Amino acid sequence: MDTTTAGAAGAAENPPVRFDTKIAVLLRDDLETWQRLNVTAFLVSGLGTASPEVIGAPYEDADGTAYLPMFRQPVLVFEAGKETMTLAHARALSRSLTTAVFTSDLFGTGNDRDNRAAVRAVGRDALDLVGMAVHGPRNAVDKVLKGARMHP
């Protein structure tokens, strides 16, 4: 069998994995680069605890060194203005999607207790959101992100 046929046979036996869910992060488009990275890291950190099925198996290299498991599917990162962020937040909540939020107030706190207190101090509709992560059915997440664009 030639390599072309072998490659095609291997692809047929192991078709690409398609997920019926989506993990997405939405960042406000006016953040500094360091803020975008920080917000993304914080937001996705909660998804595995709320939706353990998004976590894959642990990794191991050829020498047998063990590494932590990671998400089993891609994380798509989007950006949008403040108005679209507010609409996306409302859509995510109305669809009961697993959601994490990061508000502008969290840039001024230095620990988990103060972070949670800062969010608790503001009503849902008045949160100054700079980022959010959502996980759920692909079509529902797509509707939540309407108006947002892929992060460059």
Rank of each mutant, 00 (worst) to 15 (best):
G10W: 08
R36V: 03
D61F: 04
D30V: 08
F42P: 10
D29C: 02
L76T: 09
D61Q: 00
H89K: 14
E32R: 14
S51D: 11
E13R: 15
S94V: 07
R72T: 01
P16N: 08
S96H: 12
A41F: 13
D30F: 09
T49P: 04
T40D: 03
R18M: 08
T98G: 02
P52K: 02
R28W: 10
G46I: 07
L68I: 09
E13G: 14
G81N: 11
G64Q: 06
D63N: 03
G81A: 07
G64A: 07
A88R: 02
A11L: 11
T84F: 00
F78S: 00
G56Y: 02
A12Q: 12
W34A: 14
L27E: 06
R91T: 13
V25R: 08
L26A: 01
L76A: 06
V77T: 09
R95E: 12
R72K: 00
F19C: 10
T65S: 01
E60N: 00
G46N: 03
P52L: 00
L27Q: 08
N38Y: 01
V77G: 03
A41M: 12
P69I: 03
E60D: 00
R28G: 09
M85Q: 13
L93H: 14
A57H: 12
L87R: 14
I23D: 05
A12D: 15
A57N: 10
L76Q: 12
A92M: 10
D20G: 12
G48H: 05
V44P: 00
T86H: 14
E79G: 03
E53H: 09
V39D: 04
L97A: 14
D30Y: 02
A62G: 13
S51Q: 12
G81W: 09
T98R: 05
F71L: 00
